[in-house]
Design a protein around this nucleic acid. Structure first.
Lengths: 148, 148
DNA sequence: AGTAATTCCATGTTATTCCATATATTCCCA
DNA sequence: TGGGAATATATGGAATAACATGGAATTACT
């Protein structure tokens, strides 16, 4: 399976349109996806995105739960109601919904950050901040001798 | 099977008419449904809605019960009597019944929230409140190390 | 006939598709 | 290895199609 690698920042026009980085677009096309499933992250002000396989992956987790439990209800609600299907148009663009723009505080640019089987959408500066945190946390762990 | 994803808020006019979000309408049409089965939720002030397959799903659950038990009677009554069939008219609209409007406290707008094989109807603010709860409960579980 | 319900229609609005141009990238050959 | 042509991408705007929405007309009910 191809993975989403690297990060790219793109402009968002007045109508909320963004062109999907061709590197990512190619991967989506090859797996037969003509739309992106974008889910609001519960941990950060970012959006978790990917093709149909990403949704399937979350559904697989759902199926392991007891269908009559409150946990199932919560998870199912989050998976489906907090998810936005973004069609990729003929020019390789998607339109960000208001919910996404609001949640990620997106102004005029978005960063597409590879995450392997998925990719994340960020407000560019928020992404930089997040990356700093990621890097320093990894450095700290290493200093503690837990890694390489 | 196509799933109901994302959420959409629509206006309700003086006659109780609401246009079904085209995303959901398309799914219903493709599965041959010209009406929506809407059942009052017993847990929240929302309505559980979907096509014929949703009703079939509830009936399947009923069939696993002892037909001569009081639980069967209760469940069967709830499935059918608390269920409202809403015809989708030529303009893609449904008419909310008084029972639905009352139960969900709907005023001038309704939110259609995807739930996979079904979708829920909410009074918009009640939906937001509910989502806040869902999100924070999931976050708590994760923080406790029980998931991901 | 009167009332309620449903269907039909008109129109403004929004969303989507299409197109045009500018910019960047790749590929090929001198 | 440096053009330079061909191809692909980015991006804005225009044209087109869908959709939302209110009201009128028709039908059904009693």
């Amino acid at each position: 399976m191809e993975r989403f690698v690297s990060n790219f920042t793109k402009k968002v026009d007045g109508k909320g349109r963004v062109s999907v980085p061709p590197q990512f677009r190619t991967i989506l096309q090859r797996s037969g996806d003509d739309q992106i499933y974008a889910q609001l992250s519960l941990e950060t002000h970012s959006v978790i995105a990917g093709g149909a396989s990403l949704l399937a992956q979350m559904e697989a987790r759902l199926e392991k739960m007891d269908p009559f439990s409150p946990e199932y209800d919560d998870w199912a609600t989050h998976i489906y109601a907090d998810n936005h299907a973004l069609k990729i148009d003929g020019d390789g663009r998607i339109i960000l919904t208001d919910a996404i723009v609001e949640h990620a505080k997106i102004k005029g640019e978005v960063t597409f950050a590879g995450r392997g089987a998925s990719f994340h959408l960020w407000q560019p500066e928020a992404f930089e901040d997040y990356m700093s945190g990621v890097r320093s946390r990894i450095r700290d762990v290493r200093a503690g001798g837990q890694l390489s």
